[in-house]
Nucleic acid binder design. Sequence first.
DNA 1: CTATTATGGACATATAAAGTCTTTTATTGG
DNA 2: CCAATAAAAGACTTTATATGTCCATAATAG
Lengths: 128, 128
Amino acid sequence: MKYSKATNYALHTMLFLAKQIPNKPMGVQQLAEMQNVSPTYLSKILTKLVKEGMINSVSGANGGYTLRHDWEDISFLDIIHAVEGKSSLFDCCLYNDPKCVIKEVMLSAEEKLENELRNRKISDLVKK
Amino acid sequence: MKYSKATNYALHTMLFLAKQIPNKPMGVQQLAEMQNVSPTYLSKILTKLVKEGMINSVSGANGGYTLRHDWEDISFLDIIHAVEGKSSLFDCCLYNDPKCVIKEVMLSAEEKLENELRNRKISDLVKK
DNA sequence: CTATTATGGACATATAAAGTCTTTTATTGG
DNA sequence: CCAATAAAAGACTTTATATGTCCATAATAG
């Protein structure tokens, strides 16, 4: 079990955008170069972020991506959910027993993970 | 990101063995039937558990698998590590920056997950 | 209008998980 | 010792998912 590279790229992109203080859009070309990834692939990931309302996009010359207005509220969990989806990390295989005691433990652990990720904001990493 | 089915099978197998109170070995055949998985595949997973010292195996007639003597100490984390390996859930892509602030956050979240999984034992689920 | 930039869909490739088959090794009961 | 039983090991196939490419389309600024 590993976080995908896509999540990695998404998180770093969000941090780049957050450090780029004013509302000047950054193009995918530039963002891709900084992360050493192909622009077309990164573009697909960023489109997910747009659809989930994490960032805004502007087509055309001097276009690119900007963070949404209330970006300071965006948590790590928000970004990860936008890229990886929101389904649980564990499903019981035994006829999908809804009362599986193992599943209960696994979900409680996942909750701890999510709580931490929910409390950490991209904006916390940008304060100078 | 999902836990593998292998982890699922491993956890359920450990619970089956724990409920089978005496030291009578259970064969992979029986364990596989109960979980509706092929015996050869399950066998590979159980071999990992043997190598990591979670369970003991006995070949030959009336052989099979038993929990190790101090099985009451075995945590969910132990089992998951035996099956999925111990490497971290997140690696920074940017030239593997060791001081990546994003990585720090991700690792702290992973720690919360692991703490919970370390505190939960298979034996807790078996107390009648 | 044209250059620029994001979006979308259809592919292609790579990697990992899931599962099978066969042989070998170990152990027990007779 | 022998035969039946059961785990271990290796090579292999299949399936699923992540990663990545290519090209056409849509939107926008100048």
